[in-house]
Write a protein that binds this DNA or RNA. Structure first.
Lengths: 298, 298
DNA sequence: TATTCATTTTGTCCTGGACAAATAGTTGAC
DNA sequence: GTCAACTATTTGTCCAGGACAAAATGAATA
């Protein structure tokens, strides 16, 4: 039943490259997979679980050297520790809503979850719902996942329901015939997370902008082409906190060079927080800042 | 402006592994990237384009040996050739609708595209829309992309709009309080495409089933856990035509072993067409077959 | 307290070899 | 002529161990 994974499967599953896995084994002695008859690595499930945890901690800024030196319990302690509070953390909504939603998620009550989300949205209105409830839920789900309190499939269900709800909300907005500015939304090829993009699309559309979303993972050259084809005033990219910080700067600089100077380039999401300043690139780590920038533009 | 890509970027962009790229260079002499000062490969844009085309042709069943032996023109000819007609190809809808939609896509008329799709859906009803129009559009867009008539960003826009529309439609369906059977929908970790999943969710929900979607790329162990947690009667997986055929069999067998015998396992999508029979796994390559199976189950 | 410089850490890339699974081609029996 | 069994080729992925540049850290200085 729990057959072990080969290195390719672990790469896909954890997001850690084959080379990284091999070099960790060489340098730190972990992971230490079994070998099959052919001398190929086979990773037991518990080691893969631990790798997932380590990856998650690294995405939070921890360094592998420390993590491998630390014992099992110390790892779990780190995982439980709150990540440094975000600078601009919107007013928490009534704790009841998010707690109720989380409870339904853990109870595997798919329909109840869907209904609770829909109700929260209708009660608060789309803008507050996105800025408060969804943001708080994302944080809560992420933390719970890191503490091992939430299974992968539970996180998937949550993400799926939120995406569905936000897409529906966007679809039901009146299509402003020629709203300004025209904003092209997408992510770079290395960034798979779409949730931030959808949240931004909600808020920006609510404020009368025309949003054209390409979904996630558009090649840079195509982003530039699309900006021209759709006569975009702004290109907005979303970077999740899991995005490798080392790549953001070069990617943005490269894209900036491909775009006409008149087109503004926005970088949003937690991944754009600690971003070195680049000429002609605006970092908007929080949704509030993005909204403010939009209102200033009009 | 057209800076060259390193091997990691090409891997992410084309889906061809680093090892594959290197071994092709060694064996076939293509691609033949430039080297930077440090001896690392840098792939020019035109070679990356060609790699994308080759990947696409390979997904159709062609073998690399032939493709590399063939000249440029021969490649394009292959790309234009119609893939073998699908066995059960639903009645084409009035050619007008798809042609109009494709035209709007190529004209970069995002709003017009959205409206045309919505109108087509309302006119035909969800079931016919999915079975005919969406299926035909997918094929047309895939073919056009392969012939180089469609840019990546145009395909992204298309996919995004369809996903949005289908999600909306699903959201607006009455939530059958306790519809039977309960179907868990998702894809395996290696399969990123969600469109087939959404189409299936539409049709199955329309027929009164309770669908619980986990989105794409759920680890096998979590699929099994989720099936138990949500008391699913059926687990339905979607495999796109791009899915490496060599993986389907083993994956399904592995998952089958993790699930209680009473839970049925469905494999859908073009990737399940040429699938060797496995005990307890039902291959349903077309949506029509999936619908028929559902109706037979009730 | 800030800024510069040296040192360590860390991810990714390299070469060239190996092998198993899948595919194609060949032979022989019915 | 069709089908099955067998051999040869093709092809993707894995391995070892070395190398290097970019980033993070820590020390020394202004």
């Amino acid at each position: 039943m729990n057959s072990m994974m080969n290195i390719g499967a672990v790469e896909r599953d954890t997001g850690l490259g084959k080379d990284t896995l091999r070099v960790w084994e060489r340098r730190y002695g972990f992971p230490q997979p079994v070998r099959d008859a052919n001398g190929e690595r086979l990773y037991p499930d518990d080691q893969v679980d631990r790798l997932r945890l380590i990856k998650r901690l690294m995405d939070q800024g921890h360094r592998p050297g420390r993590l491998f030196a630390a014992g099992e319990d110390e790892l779990l302690q780190l995982a439980s520790a709150q990540p440094p509070a975000r600078s601009a953390c919107g007013p928490e909504d009534r704790a009841g809503a998010t707690a109720d939603i989380l409870a339904r998620l853990k109870a595997h009550d798919a329909q109840g979850l869907s209904q609770a989300l829909k109700q929260a949205m209708l009660r608060q209105g789309l803008e507050l719902f996105v800025l408060n409830t969804v943001a708080a839920l994302n944080r809560a789900v992420g933390d719970a996942w890191m503490r091992g309190e939430l299974a992968v499939f539970e996180e998937h269900l949550y993400a799926e329901q939120i995406k569905s709800l936000l897409r529906q909300a966007i679809g039901n907005l009146p299509a402003g015939a020629d709203g300004r500015p025209r904003i092209l939304l997408t992510t770079v090829p290395e960034e798979r997370h779409v949730l931030g993009l959808l949240m931004a699309e909600c808020l920006l559309s609510l404020d009368g902008a025309t949003c054209i979303s390409l979904g996630a993972q558009t090649p840079l050259a195509d982003i530039a082409q699309a900006a021209a084809a759709h006569r975009a005033d702004i290109v907005a990219l979303s970077f999740s906190s899991a995005f490798p910080a080392r790549l953001t700067g070069p990617l943005l600089a490269q894209l900036r060079a491909m775009l006409p100077p008149a087109v503004r380039l926005w970088a949003g999401g937690a991944g754009s927080q600690r971003l070195a300043a680049i000429d002609g690139v605006e970092a908007l780590p929080t949704l509030e800042e993005a909204l403010a920038a939009l209102r200033a533009a009009n």
